[in-house]
Amino acid sequence: MAKELEIGVLLHTRHLIREGGSSPSFEQLWDDAVLSEEMGLDHIWLGDSITLLDKARGDCLTTLGALAMKTKRIKLGVVPFLPVLRHPVVLAHALATLDVISNGRLIIAASVASMREHIQRQFAACGAPIHEKAGRLEESIQILRGLWTQDTLTHEGRYYQLKEVGILPHPIQRPAIPIWLTADRHDDGFKRVAKLADGWVTMVNTAEKFAQGRAKVDVYARECGRAGKIPVSALYASFNMDANGEKARSEGWAWMEKFFGVPQSQSAYHVGIFGTPEECARTIQTYVDAGMTTVIARIASSDPKRQMRLLLNEVRPRLSL
């Protein structure tokens, strides 16, 4: 049997926080997670932001622990995750514990982060120098894997120094929790994926750019002796589908403008796959033909359950891997 495209969905907590008044409830999130598993999705994802009131979310790691107890099979992840906002020893312990709680279902899709103003504010609030973000990310990944696989770790780096530090529990997954890394345009990002990642995540808005990015990852992976070590190629995109394609496009972009607080003209870096199920399947197929193995879907609709069903029942069966 041919392998199917893996499909995951981003579960939102922003509206639960901002519209919940003084007592926000996460009951809808638990229901959405259970439904995602029952429908046969491969993974569920949360976003990561800490100090941004206009983008407030529940803490992603705490919430993942609860989701792990509400589900049994589906994989759990954070995208895009910002490890540099946390000390790597504390983070290694938290993620390892989550992997044990979830019985080995954790994934992280880490990002070096952009230089957009709201990202700079968040780094400053967490005491993380944003001009050091790339170096700190790479060093953090080395520390995470060292603490997950060794009894004790001694590390003398530019940003972190550890002497005979160990954590327990270790993750269930071996050799370690999968770490996917984002890269869209810059060669430094593709080189980082090639050197350190178990998977590649991107938001490029054409299949041609996707193929070019995957080719760069493969070239750089061969150069550093990691050919074949990065099997996952994931597209992070927003979806809205309807039998009326124009309705889907209108609703999808209206949802995006409300969610991000900027007009469509300023959202060029977001991939919007909006239209009829047939149109969306044709678009996704171009990415599959370019090497995509996985979709992480942000549902740009007020009816996410219907959209998830369309994605699984009307779009995925039309795809040829």
Rank of each mutant, 00 (worst) to 15 (best):
residue 5 L to W: 02
residue 6 E to F: 00
residue 8 G to V: 12
residue 9 V to C: 01
residue 10 L to N: 11
residue 10 L to H: 09
residue 10 L to R: 08
residue 12 H to E: 15
residue 13 T to L: 08
residue 14 R to W: 02
residue 14 R to T: 10
residue 15 H to D: 13
residue 18 R to Y: 07
residue 22 S to V: 13
residue 22 S to Y: 13
residue 22 S to E: 10
residue 28 Q to A: 13
residue 35 L to S: 09
residue 37 E to Y: 10
residue 37 E to D: 08
residue 38 E to V: 01
residue 39 M to P: 08
residue 39 M to L: 13
residue 44 I to W: 07
residue 48 D to I: 06
residue 49 S to L: 06
residue 49 S to N: 09
residue 51 T to E: 00
residue 54 D to R: 13
residue 57 R to P: 02
residue 58 G to S: 15
residue 59 D to W: 07
residue 62 T to M: 14
residue 64 L to H: 02
residue 68 A to K: 07
residue 68 A to N: 01
residue 72 K to Q: 09
residue 75 K to W: 11
residue 78 V to F: 00
residue 81 F to S: 03
residue 86 R to N: 07
residue 93 H to S: 14
residue 94 A to L: 13
residue 95 L to M: 12
residue 97 T to D: 10
residue 97 T to S: 15
residue 98 L to F: 09
residue 100 V to K: 02
residue 100 V to P: 00
residue 100 V to S: 01
residue 101 I to G: 00
residue 101 I to A: 06
residue 102 S to W: 03
residue 104 G to H: 06
residue 109 A to I: 10
residue 113 A to I: 05
residue 115 M to F: 12
residue 117 E to A: 11
residue 118 H to E: 15
residue 120 Q to C: 13
residue 120 Q to A: 03
residue 123 F to H: 13
residue 126 C to E: 10
residue 126 C to G: 04
residue 127 G to R: 00
residue 130 I to E: 05
residue 130 I to W: 03
residue 131 H to M: 11
residue 131 H to E: 15
residue 132 E to I: 07
residue 133 K to S: 07
residue 134 A to M: 14
residue 139 E to D: 03
residue 139 E to G: 12
residue 142 Q to L: 15
residue 146 G to S: 09
residue 149 T to V: 04
residue 150 Q to A: 08
residue 153 L to F: 12
residue 155 H to L: 07
residue 155 H to T: 08
residue 168 L to N: 14
residue 171 P to H: 07
residue 172 I to S: 01
residue 180 W to P: 08
residue 182 T to M: 10
residue 186 H to M: 10
residue 187 D to T: 09
residue 191 K to V: 13
residue 192 R to H: 06
residue 198 D to T: 09
residue 201 V to Y: 03
residue 204 V to S: 04
residue 204 V to R: 00
residue 206 T to W: 04
residue 209 K to W: 01
residue 209 K to R: 09
residue 210 F to R: 01
residue 210 F to A: 02
residue 218 D to L: 14
residue 218 D to F: 06
residue 220 Y to A: 01
residue 221 A to Y: 03
residue 226 R to F: 05
residue 232 V to W: 05
residue 233 S to T: 05
residue 235 L to V: 03
residue 240 N to L: 04
residue 240 N to M: 05
residue 240 N to K: 10
residue 242 D to T: 09
residue 244 N to I: 06
residue 246 E to H: 11
residue 253 W to R: 12
residue 254 A to L: 05
residue 255 W to P: 12
residue 258 K to T: 14
residue 258 K to C: 13
residue 259 F to I: 12
residue 261 G to Y: 00
residue 267 S to L: 09
residue 268 A to Q: 14
residue 273 I to K: 01
residue 275 G to R: 02
residue 284 I to W: 02
residue 284 I to K: 03
residue 288 V to S: 05
residue 290 A to D: 01
residue 293 T to F: 02
residue 295 V to P: 05
residue 298 R to A: 09
residue 298 R to E: 04
residue 300 A to I: 00
residue 301 S to V: 10
residue 302 S to A: 15
residue 306 R to H: 13
residue 308 M to H: 04
residue 308 M to Q: 06
residue 314 E to W: 09
residue 318 R to L: 08
residue 320 S to F: 03
residue 321 L to P: 07
